[in-house]
């Protein structure tokens, strides 16, 4: 099927087959996001209430946070939203290669955000002694930001599955096994890259920007580095577009629904960034 031939033939803002004129997938997603608003509203208010009435074992919060790291995470998530919007735009025009590139970019940015969060949590637990049960602040902070992190992780998984789906061949040849392998390679690259990156950051913290840090990094993280490089090579190999894909403009609603979820994760972070982080500095 030529995806370009049908470009512009579908009205992406109106569905004549439903009584509301809205595609059912989109309607479902908006209803789900409305309910998720209430979920996050409850978590954010719980955190703020305990900040209004801090418990006696309250840690020094300004000394705890790293504004540089959080600002970087925020910037990354905002830019991932841009890539997601561009992915939806490309899919609506039937440009499958551009959709793939934008989806990959969104996945990478989502993973960078998750890595920052893993680093932040690990730093708080091991160096600042803040755990889920050490104080009321720890409980509400980890519950709120952890729930948001779970949403991001689910979003990344969804993006990966959508990316793999874009390779489904239109001629009906078997692709399930290849897709499972593709997913496994993604999982290996993700875990190995995050482990190697965190190992690199710890080496830098311990030894500074010296040759010693580099040798410690290579010594401790060699398996993770090899797995990352091999996995990336595997992704390039699996990402070769040999057959015409079944995926095209008709799938734009699937990408758009996923995009709605991803942007929602972004807007929740916009609120968390102000309510949980920035207000602490006043």
């Amino acid at each position: 099927m030529s995806t370009h031939a049908a470009a512009g033939a579908i009205d992406h803002h109106h569905d004549h087959t439903t009584t509301t004129g809205i595609p059912n997938k989109k309607l479902f997603m908006w209803a789900f996001l409305a309910s998720d608003c209430m979920f996050f509203g409850a978590l954010i208010s719980t955190h703020l209430i305990y900040r209004l009435h801090p418990t006696p074992n309250q840690p020094d919060i300004v000394g705890l946070f790293s504004l540089e790291l959080t600002s970087f995470s925020t910037f990354i998530l905002l830019m991932s939203s841009l890539l997601m919007a561009l992915a939806v735009n490309a899919c609506q025009k039937g440009h499958v290669p551009a959709t793939r590139k934008m989806l990959l970019g969104t996945i990478v940015f989502g993973l960078i955000f998750l890595t920052c969060q893993v680093y932040e949590f690990s730093h708080f637990v091991h160096e600042k002694g803040l755990t889920l049960s050490s104080s009321m602040f720890g409980s509400t902070f980890y519950t709120l930001t952890g729930t948001h992190g779970c949403h991001v992780a689910i979003g990344v998984l969804w993006l990966v599955l959508m990316y793999i789906r874009t390779f489904k061949p239109s001629d009906g040849s078997p692709w399930i096994l290849k897709s499972v392998i593709h997913l496994l390679v993604f999982a290996v690259v993700t875990v190995a890259a995050i482990k190697a990156l965190l190992g690199g950051v710890h080496a830098l913290h311990e030894f500074g920007a010296t040759g010693e840090a580099l040798s410690a990094f290579v010594h401790h993280e060699l398996p993770a580095i090899i797995a990352t490089v091999a996995g990336l090579a595997g992704l390039v190999f699996l990402g070769r577009d040999r057959k015409a894909p079944e995926f095209g403009e008709a799938n734009a609603i699937d990408v758009e629904s996923m995009g709605l979820y991803w942007h929602f994760v972004d807007i929740v972070w916009i609120v968390i960034f102000t309510a949980v982080y920035l207000l602490e500095y006043l």
Binding site: G21, I22, W30, H263
Partner: peptide, 11 residues
């Protein structure tokens, strides 16, 4: 980004 500007008011 979420296209509400271009979508139906019901959304």
């Amino acid at each position: 980004f979420m296209h509400l500007k271009w979508d139906k008011l019901f959304c």
